[in-house]
Every structure is written in structure tokens, then in C-alpha cells.
């Protein structure tokens, strides 16, 4: 999906220099709607995982400490995390929570469940200004 958007944007840029006629790669309102639906499906999946869907070994779930994904601060990553001893990205901190409070095996960083969790967490924080590194 991203590739297609990039391509569309790049082409649009290039085309302004050449001819304004060709629209072959432009995206439409229908595309936008469809992509948003795709995204929201993953958000919903993330919401389920966040609310007990990770089948954590000790039954603890993310929402117990983070109702509506509050205090997860996705807009502040990457940032220094003392618990990891380095500047970390959000998914690393999600794994820290899965391993520690949830006492469960961490997810691969490209696991679709990790993507879904991040989709939900950032969706609940939409509109908030980026603040990388903030504590």
C-alpha cells in the first residue's frame, strides 16, 4: 500500500513538470475510504489484543494499566527508556510490557499482532503532536 502511495506521489510530482493529463496512478476517494477501512480493521484487531487478546500467561492485559491506551505516549518514541538502557522505539517498549507485567514471550517486531497493537495505540492518540524523546 505504502509503495503505491509513494509511487503515486512521486509520479504526481514528476508529471507536473511534464504533462498534467495522465492520471493513471492517481488515487481516488474510493481508494482513501478503502485504505482507511483496511487500517481500522487492524486498529480493531489491535484493540482486541490490547484488551486481553494476547493470552498472557498471567492473565494480565495491556488495558488494565492503559485504559484507551493512555500513558503509552506513542508520540514520544523513539525515546530513552531506562528499562532498556537505550533509546528505543515503541514496539520495543510494547515487548517490554509483554515480557514483564504480562510475563509472556515477546513478539517479533514485524509480527502482525505487533503492527495491530501499534495501530490501536497510535489511533487512540491521534491528533497529538509528535514529541520524540519526551518524558
Amino acid at each position: 500500500m505504502l509503495t503505491r502511495i509513494t509511487k503515486a506521489v512521486l509520479c504526481a510530482g514528476a508529471l507536473t513538470l511534464a504533462q498534467p493529463a495522465a492520471q493513471a496512478e492517481e488515487f481516488t476517494e474510493a481508494d482513501l475510504k478503502s485504505w482507511e477501512e483496511q487500517f481500522m480493521t487492524v486498529v480493531k484487531r489491535g484493540e482486541k489484543l490490547f484488551h486481553g487478546g494476547l493470552e498472557s500467561k498471567n492473565t494480565v492485559s495491556c488495558d488494565q494499566c492503559h485504559p484507551n491506551a493512555t500513558n503509552t505516549h506513542p508520540e514520544t518514541y523513539p525515546k530513552f527508556q531506562q528499562q532498556l538502557g537505550k533509546v528505543a522505539v515503541l514496539s520495543e517498549m510494547i515487548n517490554w510490557c509483554i515480557e514483564n507485567p504480562l510475563e509472556t514471550e515477546p513478539l517479533a517486531l514485524d509480527d502482525p499482532r505487533m503492527t495491530a497493537l501499534q495501530a490501536y495505540i497510535t489511533w487512540e492518540r491521534r491528533g497529538v503532536e509528535l514529541a520524540p524523546g519526551k518524558h
Binding site: C65, P67, N68, T70, E124, R125, V128
Partner: peptide, 13 residues
Amino acid sequence: AWPWPYPSTYSQE
């Protein structure tokens, strides 16, 4: 048991 964030930290409501 565990702390809760303040409701003001939920940016959507």
C-alpha cells in the same frame, strides 16, 4: 495493585 492514568491524558474525550 496498579495505577491508572488520569482521564485528562485520554486525548479523544
